[in-house]
Nucleic acid binder design. Sequence first.
DNA 1: AAACAAATCTGGAGCTACTCCATGTTCCGG
DNA 2: CCGGAACATGGAGTAGCTCCAGATTTGTTT
Lengths: 143, 143
Amino acid sequence: MSEPQSSRANLSIGDVSELTGSSIDTIRYYERVNLMPEVERTSGGHRVYTDEHIRRLAFIRHSRALGLSLEQIRQVVDGTEGGSYSCEEWQSLLNLCAEGIVRQIDDLRTAERNLREMIDACGQAELPNCRVVERLLAGEIPQ
Amino acid sequence: MSEPQSSRANLSIGDVSELTGSSIDTIRYYERVNLMPEVERTSGGHRVYTDEHIRRLAFIRHSRALGLSLEQIRQVVDGTEGGSYSCEEWQSLLNLCAEGIVRQIDDLRTAERNLREMIDACGQAELPNCRVVERLLAGEIPQ
DNA sequence: AAACAAATCTGGAGCTACTCCATGTTCCGG
DNA sequence: CCGGAACATGGAGTAGCTCCAGATTTGTTT
Ligand SMILES: [Zn+2]
Ligand SMILES: [Zn+2]
Ligand SMILES: [Zn+2]
Ligand SMILES: [Zn+2]
């Protein structure tokens, strides 16, 4: 029956924005797509935030930095609200995410390699009409 | 005064799609955003493509695979039409692009590292209520 | 209390690079 | 000439925000 020490803060959206580093628009966006807990309003309609919102925002930011999609974050949030989020679920979510990231890195590395090849192909030439571009446009560099 | 050997092909959009591997919608999209040369029409309005379109599409595909944005590709295409595209321009474009890719790779690697840490933190535990998730939601894992 | 500026509100559009859809028209083989 | 495949158009949807205009609220200063 001990009260958790917080949930009272009375912050404006501008305060929250400064505290968390998320833009005001982003914070409202998260609310629109149901990632934020319900938020109180003043009589005039301005949003009033509590510590809980700050924590939720931090969670979203950290999860986004991990590469999770908003949909995945929603899963976790909804999961923990409507019960529990097990280690199994959490680990499989993160593993899935890690796989995606590895794939993306691979793709980017391939792109980088091809880019370097193109740069090399152009080489030290300093022509007003790049031969590489001409050949690319002419379809002479296939595959 | 020798004719270049092509520019006559009379292909339907479906043919072009099969030949290049770009979808019909994508081909029409490239036309809408001014990446394709003007395309003739039959009396009924169906598009009729030539070899030039095939080459342009190949150029777009290759450039996209290198990681260039449509805007960057447009720069090259417009540049070569209204004059020349120099090695200097080409190399600086590609270098710019390469830098962006390297940045993306770095970001993704950071994300992967953090993900692995999270997975480790959850560890071998098989709890119905993951402690890591709880702590993340509670804001106990800061920074 | 009145005025004023700063902050916030809403709804909507815009961004990238496509993809998908409904509805209507054209093309082509038999 | 007819049926079905291919094609046309316009518009909406995707992710994850960002930006805008125009109206309202809030907090401070006179
Ligand atoms: Zn766990
Ligand atoms: Zn190719
Ligand atoms: Zn060159
Ligand atoms: Zn943080």
